[in-house]
Amino acid sequence: MIVAERKPMDEIFQMLAGCKKVLVLGCGGCVTVCLTGGERQAEMLASQLNLAAKAKGEAMQVDFDSITRQCEKEFFDNLSEAPADYDAVLSIACGAGVGYMSEQFPKVTVLPGMNTTHLAANVALGIWEEYCRGCGDCMLAWTGGVCPIAKCSKSLVNGTCGGTDKGKCEVNPEMNCGWLMIYERLKELDRLDEYRTMRPLRDHRTDRGNGVRRLVLAEMTEEEAGDE
C-alpha cells in the first residue's frame, strides 16, 4: 500500500494563507488504511485548522469531506459540495490523488496536505515499513524475497557494502542491513549461489529514467474504444 504522512501544520498554514473557505478532503484508499488521510483524519484536521485560525484571529472556514478514492474519476461525483465553492481544497490523499483531482478540477486550487513516502507493509501496530520502491524490474526471485532496492540504503545489487555492522546499516543503526537479510535468507533457503551470481546493470528506464510510467491493459482499452 501507499503510505503518506501529514505535512507539518506550519507548512499547511503557509499554503492556505489568504483562503477564506477551505475543504479538507480525505481519501478512502491506502491513506485510510494507514490512518493518516481518511475521513476521520480529514475531520480532525479540519477542526484543528478551524481552532488554529480562530486563535490567530483569521476568518477561515474549514469543512471536511471524504470520498472512496481520489485516484478515480467516478468517485468525485460523490462530493457533498462543489470544489469550486472553495478557495482551496486541501487533499489528504497520496500525491496521485492530489494530482489527479487537480487535473479533474482545473479551476480549483488543490493543495497537498500530505507527503507521500513509500510502498509499505503494516509490520506492527502503527508501523508501516517500506518493502517496494516500484523500480519496475522485480528482483525478489533471486534475493530470497528481500528487496535490495527498497531494503539496502544504497540499492546495491551485488551484495553487502563495507557499511554493514552487526546486522545494521551505516546510515542508521536502527535499520537492518538489507544485504545481510538477503544473505541470511538465501543461506536459509540453501540458495547462496544467487548471492554469488554477478547481476546485470540496472536498466533505469523501468524506474524513472524513461519519463511517466503507465499501465495499459490493451483488452480493456480496446473494449472501451469499441463501445464508443
Binding site: 563495507g162 554493514t164 545481510l180
Partner: peptide, 11 residues
Amino acid sequence: CADEVDPQVIK
C-alpha cells in the same frame, strides 16, 4: 574484521 565476514568474502 567485519562481524559477518562470509558475505564480505563472497562479495
